[in-house]
């Protein structure tokens, strides 16, 4: 088991007339931790549900690929769905059942289930095993969800905002547990979130969605430091940024701050410094905000 890859071809999922995912061509390499980033309503959850076979595509297709299973569409295919684990914030749990029954169900459905690991993690998160699911607090319910996600050791595991109900110490516990188990049993992990700064260090690749379309897909480290902000007298800033991809502009009197995308080459940097302009890096969270901003003309 080394993880399943994902390929989508012109994938479209519509709700009535509204496309939630729109002609998406995407590849997720096996064995990596991918971040699926986007604002609310960008199509992250619909994409996640389609990858896990919870939902059929309206157009195009999804393929889940691996040595063991070949290349298959997940919808209504038990070979795939037993190997793909999607944990959503709602938990998709049987509310009236006690926690230990939920564990029993997982162990019968998940070929790589590890009961010992599940027990350890439930202890750490202090989830009472005899309690009925509906009696758990929101935080404990989320914790139960992520425990199921980790202990399933599914070759493709997707956490769709599953940890939103958890407080900061619990989320940190989740990140630590996930990294530790991933280091030991590498597999494909997808973390869908809008909490970019909190999870970015866990990721190897990011996919950024906006309104159902792909904005960018890249190794996360290549996005760090990929933007730059240039600040100084407006005319000089405009002259220097004329040929660059401008993400955002801000003016205060005669001073202008322009955020651009892409590495600045050395001659340009030297020119900026010689002109007395300030050049600063742009953080990942900020870059994400600019790339998915609702403003018109912001690209």
């Amino acid at each position: 088991m080394s993880g399943l890859g994902v390929r989508t071809e012109q994938l479209t999922v519509r709700f009535g007339d509204v496309p939630a995912v729109d002609s998406l061509d995407l590849r997720l390499a096996p064995g990596k931790i991918h971040g699926l980033l986007g604002r609310n309503g960008s199509g992250k959850s619909t994409l996640a549900a389609t990858l896990a076979g919870f939902r059929a595509p309206t157009g195009g297709r999804v393929l889940i690929e691996g040595d063991e299973i070949g290349s298959r569409e997940p919808y209504e295919d038990a070979v795939v769905t037993s190997r793909v684990c999607l944990i959503r914030e709602s938990g998709d749990l049987v509310d009236s059942a006690p926690v230990r029954h939920v564990l029993g169900l997982a162990s019968s459905l998940r070929p790589y289930w590890n009961a010992e690991l599940a027990g350890e993690l439930l202890d750490k998160f202090e989830v009472p095993v005899r309690q009925r699911v509906q009696k758990l607090s929101r935080g404990k319910k989320s914790a139960l969800g992520v425990v199921l996600g980790i202990a399933s050791r599914a070759p493709l595991t997707i956490f769709d905002e599953s940890y939103l109900g958890m407080d900061v110490p619990s989320r940190n516990l989740f990140y630590d547990a996930l990294l530790a188990d991933y280091a030991e049993f590498p597999r494909t992990i997808v973390l869908s979130t809008h909490l970019v700064s909190e999870v970015s260090s866990l990721l190897e690749e990011v996919v950024i969605l906006d309104r159902g379309r792909l904005v960018t897909q890249a190794p996360v480290d290549s996005l760090r430091g990929r933007g730059a902000s240039i600040v100084g007298p407006a005319t000089l800033v405009d002259e220097l940024t004329a040929d660059l991809i401008v993400l955002a502009e801000q003016r205060l009197g005669g001073t202008k701050s322009t955020t651009v995308l892409g590495d600045l080459d050395d001659t340009l940097l030297a020119k900026a410094r010689a002109a007395g302009l300030e050049v600063g890096p742009v953080g990942l969270q900020e870059l994400f905000v600019h790339l998915t901003g609702a403003k018109e003309g912001a690209r």
């Binding site: 940190n172 260090s201 866990l202 990721l203």
Partner: peptide, 17 residues
């Protein structure tokens, strides 16, 4: 790299790089 990744809560591939 795995110890480092766990300690600083970062992706093991990043640490390895």
């Amino acid at each position: 790299t795995n110890q480092y990744a766990a300690f600083y809560r970062i992706n093991p591939a990043t640490a390895a790089k």
